[in-house]
Design a protein around this nucleic acid. Structure first.
Length: 318
DNA sequence: AAGAGTCGCAACCGCCGACTC
DNA sequence: AGAGTCGGCGGTTGCGACTCT
C-alpha cells in the first residue's frame, strides 16, 4: 500500500525530512552516537545554560515567515538539536516551540483532514488498552500526531462514547461499575529476557485482532508469553461482547550500524534529492519492521493486516 | 445584524526520564 | 553521585471560527 505523502501547503517540501538513521548529513563524519535518539553534537548542548529562556522569544501563533524559516532549515540540516535550531534558523522561538510546530503541523507526512470511521474505532480500541498514551496511539495511526488525536478524542470521541452510553475513561457502560483494570495485555516478548550487552531496544507495539490469523512474530515465536497471555490462550478471549484486541509490546533489535551503513545512500551536503531518489519510501506510513520514529521505513507486505494495523516482523533484508 | 455561547485546534505549561558534566 | 539540561509527553489554555438566539 503506497501511502502518498501529503503535500498541501508544503508542496515545496518534496524532500526527505526524516532520517532512517540518527545522524543528519552534516554530522555523518562524527562517531555513531550511543543513544538511539538523535544526538546533538553542537556545543550548546554541552553547556548548562537554561533552555527555552530566550529573551524576547516569540509566543503564540506562528507566522508564515517563521514556518518557512523552520522548513528551510530542516530541509537543509534535518531536525534534532532543537535547542540550537531557533538561533541557527533565525527564529525568535524556543526549541520546544519549534519542535512542536514541526511535529504537529509542518511535518510533510502528516495526514490532514477528517478522521475516518476506521480511525475512530481504532482510537477507541487503543485508548481502552493504553489509556491517554497519545503518542503510542499516534504511533499506530500513520500521519496523525499525538496532539491531533488527543484533541480529537476530547472533542469528538468522548462525546461519541457518551452517546453510546459508555464511560470514555473506563470504556464500560455507565451503569456498570469499573472492575480491576487488568485489561491491558502489554507483555514483554521472550527475546528481551536475555539481551546481549550492546542490545539496543526500540519499543514496537504490536496489535492483532482475534479475527486475524497472524503468524507469531519472530521475536515472540517461542513461548514468550506472560501469565496473562497464557491464561488468555488457555481460557479464551474475554466474552464481554466487545471486540478483543491483543496488545503486545515487542522490543525490536536496532538495525545494526554496519548493515544500515551498507543500505544507506551516501550523502553529500544538501543532497536530499539524492536521498529521495535512493529511498523512495520516504513519506510513507510507518512500518514497524523498523524502528519506531523512523518515518522513512518501507511498508512490507507482512506488516499490514486486513485491519490496517502494522505489526512487527523481520526487517525486509532478513 | 449583532451579541452570546460553543466548538475545535494550535500552542503553551509543567513534569519526567535520559543523558552529560 | 549529584546537579543540570534536553527532548518528549500529557494536560491545559487561549483564541478564532462557527452557531444559535
Amino acid at each position: 500500500m503506497a501511502h502518498k505523502t501529503e503535500t498541501r501547503s508544503l508542496e515545496t517540501m518534496n524532500l526527505t525530512l526524516y532520517w532512517p538513521w540518527p545522524l543528519p548529513p552534516l554530522l555523518l563524519s562524527n562517531p555513531k552516537p550511543s543513544s538511539t535518539s538523535s544526538i546533538c553534537l553542537c556545543p550548546l548542548s554541552m553547556g548548562r545554560s537554561p533552555c527555552c529562556e530566550q529573551a524576547h522569544a516569540n509566543k503564540g501563533a506562528w507566522t508564515k515567515d517563521e514556518d518557512q524559516r523552520l522548513i528551510d532549515y530542516i530541509r537543509l540540516h534535518g531536525d534534532g538539536c532543537w535547542r540550537s535550531l531557533p538561533k541557527a534558523a533565525g527564529l525568535l522561538r524556543c526549541g520546544k516551540s519549534c519542535r512542536l510546530r514541526w511535529i504537529n503541523y509542518l511535518r510533510p507526512d502528516l495526514k490532514r483532514g477528517n478522521f475516518t470511521e476506521e480511525e475512530d474505532e481504532l482510537i477507541i480500541k487503543l485508548h481502552s488498552l493504553l489509556g491517554n498514551k497519545w503518542s503510542l496511539i499516534a504511533g499506530r495511526l500513520p500521519g496523525r500526531t499525538d496532539n491531533e488525536i488527543k484533541n480529537y478524542w476530547n472533542t469528538h470521541i468522548k462525546r461519541k462514547l457518551i452517546s453510546r452510553g459508555m464511560d470514555p475513561q473506563t470504556h464500560r457502560p455507565f451503569n456498570q461499575p469499573a472492575a480491576n483494570t487488568t485489561t491491558n495485555t502489554v507483555s514483554k516478548p521472550s527475546c528481551i529476557k536475555n539481551p546481549s550487552p550492546d542490545f539496543k531496544y526500540n519499543e514496537l507495539i504490536q496489535f492483532k485482532s482475534n479475527s486475524d490469523s497472524l503468524e507469531q512474530p519472530n521475536c515472540t515465536a517461542s513461548s514468550g508469553m506472560t501469565t496473562d497471555e497464557q491464561q488468555q490462550q488457555q481460557y479464551g478471549h474475554p466474552s464481554n461482547g466487545q471486540d478483543y484486541l491483543n496488545l503486545e509490546l515487542s522490543i525490536g533489535i536496532r538495525v545494526s550500524s554496519a548493515n544500515s551503513a551498507e543500505s544507506k545512500p551516501k550523502l553529500e551536503n544538501n543532497s536530499f534529492q539524492i536521498l529521495e531518489q535512493a529511498m523512495p519510501m520516504v513519506g510513507k506510513a510507518v512500518c514497524l519492521c523498523w524502528e519506531l520514529g523512523f518515518r522513512t521505513s518501507e511498508i512490507c507486505s507482512k506488516c499490514q493486516n486486513s485491519n490496517g494495523f502494522y505489526r512487527y516482523c523481520r526487517p525486509l533484508d532478513s
